[in-house]
Design a protein around this nucleic acid. Sequence first.
DNA 1: AAATTACTCAACCGCTATGTA
DNA 2: GTACATAGCGGTTGAGTAATT
Length: 250
Amino acid sequence: MGCGNCEKPKVHCKKGLWSPEEDQRLRDYILRHGHGCWSTIPAKAGLQRNGKSCRLRWINYLRPGLKRGIFSAEEEETIINLHAMLGNKWSQIAMHLPGRTDNEVKNHWNSYLKKRVISNSQASKSQEINNKKHLVCDQIIEPLESSSMDSSSSKGTTTQPQSAFPKVMFADWFSMENNVNGGDTSSMSSLLELQSNVDEQPSDTDFLHGFREGDDVCGFETQGPTSTSGLFDLFYLGDLCANFDSHLDE
DNA sequence: AAATTACTCAACCGCTATGTA
DNA sequence: GTACATAGCGGTTGAGTAATT
């Protein structure tokens, strides 16, 4: 890589945007002589720039065959897929996009594609949570509600206004979930293990204990008194389930 | 219409890899 | 073996512009 013939021209180097005249000088020189050793090009081409700046300008802007303008949907898909595999290897990603530079790919990712990928993943995550909510409602809460509705109607009590998610005892949810899963007690064991570690990992497990009536938990208001363990309080069952699931997964 | 904020993109900077003396 | 120089890469910055308040 080193070039023994290279002199080191110590001229004042201009910075900032390139003028059309500078572009023309650099383009003319390289098309006529090739770039050879970049550090000698500024002097030979009559430019007050450093070699590095010339190289970058040629690669990113002046080089023939560059495709400028809006990225096509296919190109964007290629970037997203390759980024998922390669990470921030912009030069490798750009190799798969003829006419695009690594700088261009990087800029497009940072200003547009990254946000799109993040928002898509958030959307799919919230969809996943919604699916869990519906699963809980379908498999656990509806049987609970229908049985409580039967008893309340028989006793003639007034029903409370319906919220987005029905109320259910957290403990009931777990015992019922275990029944749904064929009596598997692993979830309950994990829960109790988490509870025993609460003091060691307060930030991770605070959501499990110490709630008082009316506390906001994951955007849902707790219902009823705080138990002595602080664990099996009454919650609106919603995002809390998903939050708890993520703890169990860890 | 002016001020502010958000966004894009060209260029620079710092670092690493590699070739040469 | 090592010191030096260059090429190349990825992160970051900043000027210009568009959108919003």
